[in-house]
């Protein structure tokens, strides 16, 4: 399996990458870790005429705290998110999601920016980032803008990125103390991609009552979905197993998953409630 040939440019800066994107238009693709793009190119499902490699652009990887936000460079590989002390202590659900993507080798090479820009509905990061209310920094030729998750993930493999924009940074609000995050996933037995997954952020008051909750479900449609009914059921309630179970039971409301070779739509709707419960329970147990 060999990709069709292409022209290769290693961009030296984000500005250069945006210029090149503008120049080549639809014939160009950005290359980060390549773990979504290269497999598609090998199967000749994608045959871009030009690849603009971001791998040598300085400053695009790394995790740091920026005020009340965790800033993750778009070229940060999954393994670094999974092992980051910052992520593990402040946003364990994010580290958890990173740690269950693909396999060791994939996590050593695949990047968070590449994953979210690809917007595969069976990917892990979009789900947790939706629950965490992350935003995405997009750099175009004429400026930069920041887009919130619900406005970023638009459809199957479709994001808010304009053709000449580069995703440079993922910004995740650091939850206040007393909150917990978690991610739970049913992986496909062959591909390891998401069959169904759930991400949760719960914020508690000192008495343990839920002040707010964000629950996102993956694998149930063209993009991650917030489980609004579940969130509403948690609001203001003590986070007992019964409350969590009752809330999680509503996690599939409003979803319309498709049956596939592995799992029926019914199974997905059912299993989403199971994983939502797990994610909420784990999040609620985290300090």
């Amino acid at each position: 399996m060999f990709p069709a040939n292409f022209g290769y440019v290693a961009a030296r800066s984000v500005e250069e990458a945006t210029e090149l994107l503008a120049k080549y238009g639809e014939e160009a693709k950005l290359l980060a870790g390549g773990h979504s793009l290269i497999p598609a190119m090998k199967l000749r499902l994608a045959s871009p005429r030009h690849l603009i490699d971001l791998g040598r652009v300085p400053g695009l990887s790394g995790i740091k705290v920026d005020g009340e936000t965790l800033s993750i460079g778009a070229l940060t590989v999954h393994a670094d998110v999974a092992s980051s002390d910052l992520a593990r202590h402040r946003l364990p659900g994010l580290a958890e999601a990173a740690s269950v993507i693909g396999d060791v080798q994939v996590r050593n090479r695949g990047t968070i920016g590449g994953s979210v820009a690809h917007a595969d509905p069976a990917a892990d990061f979009p789900v947790i980032l939706t629950a965490l209310d992350a935003s995405f920094v997009l750099q175009g030729r004429f400026g930069r803008r920041t887009v919130a998750a619900p406005d970023f993930f638009l459809d199957f493999y479709t994001t808010a990125l304009a053709p000449d924009e580069v995703l440079t940074e993922i910004r995740v609000p650091l939850p206040s103390s007393g909150s917990g995050t978690a991610y739970a996933k049913l992986p496909h037995p062959a591909s390891g991609y998401v069959v169904v997954s759930a991400a949760a952020l719960v914020v508690r008051d000192p008495s343990g009552r839920c002040v707010s909750a964000a629950v996102a479900i993956g694998g149930m449609g063209s993009r991650p979905q917030r489980a609004a009914a579940t969130e509403a059921s948690l609001h203001g309630q003590p986070l007992t197993p019964e409350v969590i179970a009752a809330a999680a039971a509503k996690a599939s409301e409003g979803t319309d998953p498709e049956s596939d070779l592995y799992a029926s739509a019914d199974y997905k709707r059912h299993i989403a409630t199971v994983y939502a419960r797990q994610a909420i329970e784990t999040a609620a147990s985290r300090k």
Partner: peptide, 12 residues
């Protein structure tokens, strides 16, 4: 780091 060399271009 362990990586899959089938999913990396030599130029990278």
């Amino acid at each position: 780091r362990a990586v899959k060399s089938c999913t990396i271009f030599a130029v990278q």
